[in-house]
């Protein structure tokens, strides 16, 4: 028995230097290391030995197996990946080593998409503080004190002077104070409303406001710009309508609807059977707003608009509960890229 082991060991060592290809290595493995290979056969033979001799033989056999495995592993490693493609036994269906992929949040993603479209139309991006004063958030935007229009925006107050902005529109006041026309900006950011949190409303959400002011800006310019935006964002086949509305800081004011893309205007749960989806509010800048920043309303005109980000994102991605957006459950967030 011991002789047989020694002899096999010599043979194995002799072949060690001659394993040049995948096939050589595989042949070596089958001959010696496979389940019915010659080393395994010797283990079988060992069972026939008297019990006293088995430990010695076992030890020698184990040493032989370890050495043979080492020779095989070294050969495979040195043949390397170069040989892999030719070898049927490297399983190419095994999963690859994936690189982690980062997922952008649906809210910032939607803002980016909207920014991209307006930047291509020549708009700059301006930002402002989330803690605002009554002047910037309301008065300069033509909300008179004690006017029912303030009810449209339930406000979080910090003290007599300061509040959490209820829209990103105050940024237009800040920019107009600093610059002279022409001004063509969009203003993304977070806004706050003191409302009960539900599937449809949250105390915080995001907006992208827009402003273009210059000499001779018209309502037709407003329509042209916003229709161009809507076609790029929602698809060029869309149908739209502008209907009169009311915002203190624009006159005339409008809301823009597009045909519901879920039901193609036939009426469904999402569009409340109307066939239309409201996508933004807009209008011509009210002369009182221009007066508040020291512009002459007879020399300058302009349009402004505001897009609700969460609403846009939820409609587009079929999310029906706004709270999901701020829970940061990665099982949800990772569905958007």
């Amino acid at each position: 028995m011991q002789d047989a082991i020694t002899q096999l060991l010599d043979e194995v060592r002799a072949r060690a230097g001659r394993l040049a290809t995948r096939d050589d290595a595989e042949d070596f493995r089958i001959q010696y290391l496979a389940r019915k290979g010659r080393i395994a056969t010797l283990f079988e033979d060992m069972k026939a030995l008297p019990p006293a001799e088995r430990p010695v033989a076992g030890k020698l056999l184990n040493a032989l197996r370890v050495e043979a495995e080492g020779i095989h592993a070294a050969a495979v490693a040195s043949i390397g990946i170069a040989g892999a493609a030719h070898a049927a036994h490297l399983d190419l269906t095994l999963p690859g080593r994936a690189m982690p992929v980062g997922h952008q949040h649906i809210v910032t993603k939607t803002i980016d998409e909207i920014k991209t479209i307006f930047k291509a139309m020549g708009f700059s991006v301006a930002t402002g503080p989330e803690i605002e004063t009554d002047w910037y958030n309301f008065q300069a935007l033509n909300f008179p004190p004690d006017h029912p229009a303030r009810d449209m925006q339930d406000t979080f107050f910090i003290d007599d002077m300061r509040l959490l902005r209820t829209h990103t529109t105050p940024v237009q006041i800040r920019v107009m104070e600093q610059r002279t026309p022409p001004i063509r900006i969009i203003m993304p950011g977070r806004v706050f409303r003191n409302e009960v949190i539900s599937a449809r409303s949250h105390v915080q959400f995001h907006q992208v406001d827009g402003l273009f002011c210059d000499a001779h800006v018209t309502f037709a310019d407003l329509k042209g710009t916003l229709v161009a935006f809507a076609k790029r964002y929602y698809g060029s086949a869309l149908k739209y309508r502008f209907r009169p509305s009311f915002f203190p800081f624009t006159e005339p004011s409008a809301e823009m609807d597009i045909t519901c893309y879920l039901c193609a205007g036939k009426g469904c749960r999402v569009c409340k059977q109307s066939g239309w989806l409201e996508i933004l509010g807009c209008g011509m800048v009210d002369p009182n707003v221009f007066r508040a920043v020291g512009y002459d309303p007879d020399a300058v005109s302009g349009y402004a608009f505001g897009i609700g980000i969460e609403r846009t994102a939820m409609l587009r991605h079929g999310v029906d509960d706004i709270r999901l957006l701020f829970e940061n459950d990665l099982r949800v967030n990772r569905q958007f890229i």
């Binding site: 690189m99 982690p100 992929v101 980062g102 997922h103 952008q104 949040h105 809210v107 910032t108 989330e130 979080f156 959490l164 977070r190 706050f192 105390v203 915080q204 957006l325 701020f326 940061n328 990665l330 967030n333 990772r334």
Partner: peptide, 10 residues
């Protein structure tokens, strides 16, 4: 490869 989150200000 980082995932972005957006949480509440309040």
């Amino acid at each position: 490869g980082m995932d972005e989150m957006v949480s509440s200000s309040l």
